[in-house]
Design a protein around this nucleic acid. Structure first.
Lengths: 161, 161
DNA sequence: CCTTTGTTTCACAATATTGTGAAGTAACTT
DNA sequence: AAGTTACTTCACAATATTGTGAAACAAAGG
């Protein structure tokens, strides 16, 4: 059924798939469909780093149709980029540079957006201390979070690509 | 059809409901069901601040059954607390003190948890520079985020409750 | 003790999400 | 030009999520 090298490769792939699944699970908490998460996970760890939809689909066990749909999603989110090579009809995908920083920043921006909602709530019911206190508390904490990030030093750039 | 005071009250309630809906929409991005989000929004802005399931249900237009289910969810998440009064069978709910800080911290913790996943990925494929670079980048950014929060001054406590 | 009122449970309906299979289309190869 | 391969589209199936209605239940009031 295959020699020792094949068996080792198989075991590796299982381990890698397990990791890919963890990545997918993490992203599904953000509403990303399972296959999209698996693709991103796979593209994080695969070798070579740039692969076609077919290769990806075979690796993670998803249908071509699912690949089409989810590659589109991932591109729209700016997580992966699509590249073609001259004289080849196949498109290759890779994780976009800085994708995860964008993920993080987007998350934070979404969170801090609630500050506006809280502000509008206070406008709505007036500054009356007792009643507005609940909303003020929420506003306060989101304001704190926004400031933490505004004041934070930017992440050190990646040295090697 | 009602006097001027009633009409004003009605208009107010519509505005408030609109705000409640925005809160619900925000929370649904985190996977909270619509009704749970509405309840939380309502409890943020309602007067009096402590209300029964029946009152809440009538205010936001949800069935008693939905209330039961979603109040349970909100309590489990630590967002609202349930209180009974001696000699009354009715339970009253209110927004838990510090609920939103908990929301924010939970979100951040969830995000930074990905640092572990990235770390395990690097363990899996070895420190080989070229291939591990993608995962290292992800690890790097999540590490940055975790540190930003670890180093951040805590939010100033609420002065008035 | 029976009524009233408010809550809970549960079966089910409505809807939304996701992914597959099969057919269609496009592009390189020979 | 015909074949091969890869991707895309689309109808549909499987599943998951939510919320409702009706019936059961519990507690307070008469």
């Amino acid at each position: 059924m295959g020699d020792a090298v094949d068996m080792a490769r198989e075991a590796d792939h299982q381990e890698v798939l397990g990791w890919v699944e963890r990545v997918a699970m993490f992203l599904s908490a953000d509403g990303l469909p399972p296959v999209a998460g698996r693709v991103l996970g796979w593209l994080m760890i695969c070798d070579p780093p740039e692969q076609s939809a077919g290769q990806i689909g075979r690796a993670i066990g998803a249908s071509p149709a699912a690949l089409t749909t989810n590659m589109r999603v991932l591109q729209a989110m700016g997580f992966v980029s699509r590249r073609t090579r001259p004289g080849e009809r196949t498109a290759y995908y890779r994780v976009e540079e800085g994708a995860w920083e964008r993920v993080v920043r987007r998350q934070i921006a979404t969170l801090t957006a609630f500050r506006e909602v809280a502000g509008d709530g206070m406008d709505l019911i007036g500054p009356d201390g007792a009643r507005a206190a609940r909303i003020r508390e929420a506003h306060h904490i989101f304001d704190w979070m926004a400031k933490v990030f505004d004041d934070a030093p930017p992440p050190t750039p990646v040295t090697e690509t």
